[in-house]
Amino acid sequence: MKIDNSLPLEYSTEENRLKILGFWIFLGAEIALFATLFATYFTLVDRTANGPVGGDIFEVTPVLIETILLLTSSFTIGLGINAMRHGSKNAMMIFFIITLALGAGFLGTEIYEFKHYVHIGAGLQVSAFTSILLTLLGTHGAHVTLGLFWGTFIVLQVKKRGLTPETTNKAFIYSLYWHFLDVVWIFIFSFVYLKGMM
């Protein structure tokens, strides 16, 4: 395997560069996926039937906690990649573990939020609005859940195998995924919650 030492490890082989570009294109597809969910959300947002409207059920506190947790985790994973580029395995692992902890905190808050919605009569089957609200949030939440497992695998691999072209490549791609989830959340935060509460 040819390793180009002038580049960061995650870019150092041709295979790595293919994977990074491939993942960017995958993120393009993810944008289209979430755009479709948003389009559906905006179409159905007023179709509340006998169920509640957004303004009735949204609460600022949990949403703000989720936002801050996720934004911070996006910051820490950025620091993790920075540490990785400086070759500091330990710092990188610490930042990744913090990221995963913040992600788990986000997920916990979201689970609490979902339970709350079902409790106050805004379950999945109540109206077109609640169906798409929970589906949109749920799709993002499922991505985060998957990300937590993925991140754990990467931490384990870095611990065992050290910073190699493969592990750094995986970690970098994972960071792209995590940042992307943050971007999606920003749009959910703005156009689902804040717009709904306005």
């Binding site: 007023d46 179709r47 409207v53 717009k195």
Partner: peptide, 15 residues
Amino acid sequence: NHGASGQGESKHSEH
């Protein structure tokens, strides 16, 4: 109607 069967409920101003 536009399918918003819950007519008369509070609506978002945009719509």
